[in-house]
Design a protein around this nucleic acid. Structure first.
Length: 501
RNA sequence: GGUUUCCUGGCCGAGCGGUUAGGCACAGGUCUGCAAAACCUGCUACAGCGGUUCGAAUCCGCUGGAAACCUCCA
């Protein structure tokens, strides 16, 4: 297994610093990302997180790593504020079987991930498919004396764990133990717990709970955070390389996950913890519960009150890539429009670039000043990615390279200034960055009827060319105007006429 | 209330002590039958006030504003 030589640095939530990335087994990476809870349609915030990790996954692959990417589907176990299992609650409303609800939204989730062109994870385990593993883990934690049973439920003993392994609890969310203890003092419904900071790892079912399983302690269901501990351990081992998720999962989800893993095996689950930042709408976090949200579908169809028009999935993906994954990103119509334009231009640039034909025989190994400038920009792009996946830097560098591409194709600079081998290099780099790493698609050339359109356009532009040759501008402008109306731009360049949508 | 983060030009958004980020918008120019596109040029900002430093958007303090977490949430 050989990897591309690199100096990848990753911001680790545990240390609060960027660290050199060194996987446990050279050449291999184990990565676990907290997946969606499938009780309603995915919202855009989820999409940003999964797009971010998709980019991270893709870049690791690009560097030559063999990556096992595990992303779970949560179809059980999270409680709502009224104490009813979320899946069960959804089911009751829709009069459906809980698993039917889960299935429907799982399919919807996969569809959306496909639309956004994310790669499927290597393994996508479901919480309901791993009940025995979770029960086993509860037992291990009990055996290690870090949990206690109370009326059929099992609770993790936070103070005991904190005393046994100082400095661990609170390390993910950056919290001070005393603060955590103080904060939880106000919560209600804690009668069974020894301490308010304790959390359930097995819950005894009440009559209204529908999704329940047998266990040594009661008929019930696993605790809120247990699935990720159990499934990451099962598929990636007790300690693996990267654990990711949204910023809002740091506490309590990830904090408790770490505690559970320690409680079961005495070791830390992941070396690098990555957290993506929130997508903002109207300057506030998008959230299903308070209605400050825009669905991906609304965005793609332009039916949201928050946008003036429809934005394509790839324009949205590009919009996300223009910001760093650890920064909040505010959705505004203006920003989306800017991103869309930037995306379309980038795609056009790449089409022009790939169409440049160079003669490999021209390669004489020499290097012009422009060559060096372009190669430095390529290096900038990689340096950006290696610096905690800074896609904004990479895009900026590609934009600058793109300007050379346009100058070349428009004869605005001497073709001799760029060596053929450098052209070949940036052809490869553009393909790699745009499609392999950023996960973009050229939407203008996709579609089954693109060949038909191509043929028609050739005919139309040919007729227009004849009109122009005869200085019949009335006809040529009529054709151009008509095409403009259906969204096709005609460009009369020095090298002939081109068009784009 | 506690903890943490953020505040960059018209807008979005990089930046992690010294160098033009980049995109979009806008203005002027080149090219063009006219456009469009592209290219060139311009717009040169870092919430405010102090401090550290030869030098700060970048480090420290205070003030102001916003957000996140503390409760299910990517």
């Amino acid at each position: 297994m050989t990897t591309v030589q690199h100096s990848l640095k990753i911001y680790n939530t545990l240390s609060g610093k960027k660290e050199a990335f060194n996987p446990i087994t050279p050449g291999y990476v184990g990565m676990y990302v907290c997946g969606p809870t499938v009780y309603s349609d995915v919202h855009l915030g989820n999409c940003r997180t999964f797009c971010s990790f998709d980019m991270i996954y893709r870049y690791l692959l690009h560097l030559g790593y063999k990556v096992r990417y595990v992303r779970n589907i949560t179809d059980v176990g999270h409680l709502t504020d009224d104490g009813v299992d979320r899946m069960a609650k959804g089911a009751r409303v829709a009069q459906l079987e809980p698993m039917e609800v889960a299935q429907r939204y799982t399919v919807g989730f996969h569809d959306m991930m496909g639309i956004l062109n994310t790669l499927p994870p290597s393994i996508e385990p479901r919480a309901t498919g791993h009940i025995p593993e979770q029960i086993e883990m509860v037992q291990e934690i009990l055996n290690n004396g870090l949990a206690y049973e109370r009326n059929g439920s099992v609770y993790f003993d936070v103070p005991k764990f904190a005393a046994k392994q100082p400095g661990v609890y609170g390390s993910v969310s950056g919290r001070i133990l005393d603060d955590l203890y103080a904060e939880t003092r106000e919560l209600k419904s804690q009668e069974e717990k020894n301490h308010p900071a304790d959390f359930a790892i097995w819950m005894k079912a009440r009559p209204q709970d529908i999704m329940v399983w047998n266990s040594p302690w009661s008929v019930g269901f696993p605790g809120w955070h247990l699935e990720c501990s159990a499934m990451s351990t099962k598929y990636l081992g007790k300690t693996f390389d990267i654990h990711g998720g949204g910023n809002d999962l740091k506490f309590p989800h990830h904090e408790n996950e770490v505690a559970q893993n320690h409680g079961a095996c005495g070791c830390h689950p992941a070396n690098y913890w990555l957290h993506t930042n929130m997508l903002l709408l109207n300057g506030k976090k998008m959230s299903k519960s308070d209605g400050n949200t825009i669905t991906p579908t609304e965005l793609f169809t332009g039916t949201s009150e928050h946008t003036s028009k429809a934005y394509s999935p790839m324009a949205v993906r590009f919009f996300m890539l223009m910001a760093h994954y650890r920064s909040t990103l505010d959705i505004t119509d203006e920003a989306l429009m800017a991103a869309e334009k930037g995306f379309l231009k980038m795609m056009e640039t790449n089409r022009l670039l790939q169409a440049i034909s160079v003669n490999a025989k021209d390669f004489d190994g020499s290097e012009t000043e422009t060559d060096r400038a372009i190669l430095a920009l390529v290096q900038d792009a990689y340096d950006g990615m290696n610096d905690d996946f800074n896609t904004a830097i990479a895009i900026a560098s590609l934009n600058e390279i793109g300007s050379y591409v346009h100058k070349l194709t428009n004869k605005q600079m001497d073709a001799a200034e760029v060596s053929p081998w450098v052209i070949e290099r940036i052809k490869t780099v553009f393909q790699a960055f745009l499609f392999d790493i950023f996960g973009l698609k050229d939407e203008s050339t996709s579609g089954a009827d693109s060949q038909t359109v191509e043929g028609l356009m050739r005919l139309i532009l040919d007729i227009r060319g004849q009109a122009r040759a005869q200085k019949d501008f009335a006809t040529s402008d009529k054709i151009r105007d008509a095409l403009t109306e259906v969204g096709i731009t005609v460009k009369d360049g020095k090298e002939g006429v081109t068009w784009s949508k």
